[in-house]
Design a protein around this nucleic acid. Sequence first.
DNA 1: TACTGACCGCATAGTCTCATCGGGTCAAAC
DNA 2: GTTTGACCCGATGAGACTATGCGGTCAGTA
Lengths: 244, 244
Amino acid sequence: MAKVGRPPQDPARQLERAHRILDAAAELILRWGYDKTTIDDVAKQAGVAKGTIYLHWKTRDALFAALLRRERVRMLGEVRAQAPATLRALLAELSAAMLRRPLMRALLVGDTEVLGKLARQKRGRTRDLPLEAFQDYLGELDKRGALRPDRTPVEREAILGSVVYGFLVAQSVLPESARVPDDRLVELLADTGDRAISTEGTPTDDDARAIAEATLDYLETVEEIAQRKLAVSLGGDPSKERVT
Amino acid sequence: MAKVGRPPQDPARQLERAHRILDAAAELILRWGYDKTTIDDVAKQAGVAKGTIYLHWKTRDALFAALLRRERVRMLGEVRAQAPATLRALLAELSAAMLRRPLMRALLVGDTEVLGKLARQKRGRTRDLPLEAFQDYLGELDKRGALRPDRTPVEREAILGSVVYGFLVAQSVLPESARVPDDRLVELLADTGDRAISTEGTPTDDDARAIAEATLDYLETVEEIAQRKLAVSLGGDPSKERVT
DNA sequence: TACTGACCGCATAGTCTCATCGGGTCAAAC
DNA sequence: GTTTGACCCGATGAGACTATGCGGTCAGTA
């Protein structure tokens, strides 16, 4: 039994509602985990009927995909707001932002507690994060002489991937005694990754400026791609939806 | 129905038999995985009766614990034989040896395919590998001026742990396209770990000698501890056995 | 036209029974 | 004393059925 007459079909209102639903989903998934969070729960928490949720997303999975995408967009937004100007700063801001977001953290670590079966299927197929854009970014750094020449692009990617993955995941696997506070961990991570592929000298002002620009460019590109994906996930028209 | 008279109770013979059983177990576990390898299979493969296996180990788990311990001892032996003289060489040899041994690799990565339920329970509680000895080793390097002073011992441990873990595990998680051949991976790993905590200059001959010695000392200590544990696992007297 | 929530049906969980497997023992054979 | 393998029995899985829960739909309401 609806209590009021129908409000206008204002698209902005619809978007706001979509976000409200995602907020509800986020809260519930963090409290009870993916497996135990039902659509009914989400609907109740968001103050809408179950059917309404299906006006936005075609399936349960599509909803959670949207949630993760929103999370990614927000994370990237945070990073970009910090305006990292070097590879090191980029690594630091990225991983700090990741550690701050429980959902991202759980996704990376493959936390079965939180993500349930989602984790199991996501595992292995690491993010389709635009590797191409990253390669371009590294190419730009290379052109500016910021990278050690004795590594191939693929190797650089493997190094940075391993370092980020290792630092973030190992913390949850290593014994208590080898644990380091998050903010310090981020410094160490960035330093390690940077040292592993960067040259030592200080770049010229010109190079530094170009690098800063490339860094922001990269972030913008990635964020834009993420945003576009999110837009599809929020696009109101569930028939267009493609669940990853 | 036994076919021959009893051979003498030569302890060396017993040890040889224990190893034959472990060989059998290793082969079967690699082919079929832990869950599907039965004691009957192992007995048949090793050419002994099932009861004989229980003369050596109290339980199935104790047998596999012994197998993993033997694997560790052999791995450490291999590393020591290479006589690494620097931290970098140590990292390289250790990880190379690890990559060469499917069981160790599976254990680290938490490969559920091979280790079945063993992996699930081992996960989280990372090896009780003698961290103390490693701290001592790093302390020695530090004394020789080989380590950057701006990291605490715990941080150094976290860094190296993360790097090793990250490089070895990430390879099996990253997309195909970011994969690097094992031997090159090992170089990159060692270089990354070394750069992250070591100072840049070349040590004096004296320091270099001391470091080489400390490295071997460390390996010896660790191997000895591992060997002692293995000896317990092979000790013939299953009542003394303590399954990890 | 925008939304609701009762309703549907499938997939999963739960229960009971029966059959098999395989870890672990021990009396007998050497 | 040493080794064996038939045997024991608890654990595990298959099978058959029921109960429940929850994702997804759609007739109905405002």
